[in-house]
């Protein structure tokens, strides 16, 4: 009896908090058929937002993948003083509010900040432009690849790499031929998580982008701006598109997740 009670409670809670809201918005988006959905997403603003999103998320994923692989190798294959501290710093972005991230970047890279001013005098604008949005996105999604790789690298051990070295492989060769194939699933998992987080980032990007329509507007910013301007169909369509991407990542991570 208690079992059915708990089950009902859990299912009802999830239904009303999670499932019904998502289904409702998808239903509302497609209530008028596919045409309005397609139309809302192919407006020039929407297409531009889509393009900005892909560029920003793409760079952020590349940066975090390279950094993620490097740092996880550092954490699992090297010993150095201060390892615990580095480990803690990697997780720091998880605890920081996206808006604080935005403010922090403005205070360093903004036009009126020393570093930002200097960069701007060289013709390199960070804040209110793509580099700032990339940095903000990199910040918020920093730990994901590292956290996906570290346990797998630990589990893998370094014996295979040492064996490769004794067989004449250089560090790079042993990384490419031995380590990388060993971590490919975990890497895929981390990259997908990182991509999802990057595509969906809102707060930090909202601050550093200046929310300039048709210039620095990403899809998430587009959703908010359309909604505030009472253009519900466009907001819902973009939200649904993002939700579908989220569901897709969910399924992908399910496939890639290291099984034990």
């Amino acid at each position: 009896m208690a079992r059915y009670g708990l089950r009902t409670l859990a299912v009802v809670y999830l239904l009303f908090l999670l499932v019904l809201p998502v289904i409702l918005i998808i239903w509302r988006t497609f209530a008028g058929g596919l045409a309005p959905f397609a139309e809302a997403l192919t407006s020039p603003s929407a297409l531009h937002a889509f393009q900005v999103t892909v560029v920003v998320a793409g760079w952020a994923v590349v940066a975090n993948t390279v950094f993620g692989i490097g740092v996880s190798l550092l954490l699992t294959r090297h010993s150095f003083p201060g390892k615990r501290l580095l480990n803690a710093f990697i997780d720091l972005p998880m605890a920081v509010s996206p808006v604080v991230v935005g403010l922090a970047l403005i205070l360093v890279y903004g036009r009126f900040a020393p570093v930002g001013g200097l960069l701007e005098s060289w013709g390199f604008q960070v804040i209110f432009s793509t580099p700032g949005m990339v940095i903000a996105t990199v910040f918020v999604s920093m730990p994901l690849v590292v956290r996906a790789l570290v346990p797998v690298l630990e589990e893998l051990g370094d014996e295979q790499e040492q064996a490769a070295h004794t067989l004449g492989a250089s560090r790079l060769q042993s990384f490419l031929r031995i380590t990388l194939p060993g971590i490919r699933w975990a890497l895929g998992y981390g990259v997908v998580l990182c991509l999802a987080r990057s595509l969906g980032e809102y707060g930090a990007v909202a601050v550093v982008s200046g929310r300039l329509v048709d210039q620095t507007q990403t899809l998430t910013l587009f959703v908010e701006e359309r909604f505030q301007n009472f253009d519900q169909p466009a907001a819902f369509a973009a939200a649904t598109a993002l939700a579908l991407v989220a569901v897709l990542t969910l399924l992908l991570t399910k496939l890639l997740r290291p099984k034990d």
Binding site: V22, I25, G200, G203, T220, F236
Partner: peptide
Amino acid sequence: IIDLPFALPTIVAGLVLLAL
């Protein structure tokens, strides 16, 4: 679907809740 809130952009989460 438990992980959906991690994958869903937060602004979309807000919009979705507002719909219901």
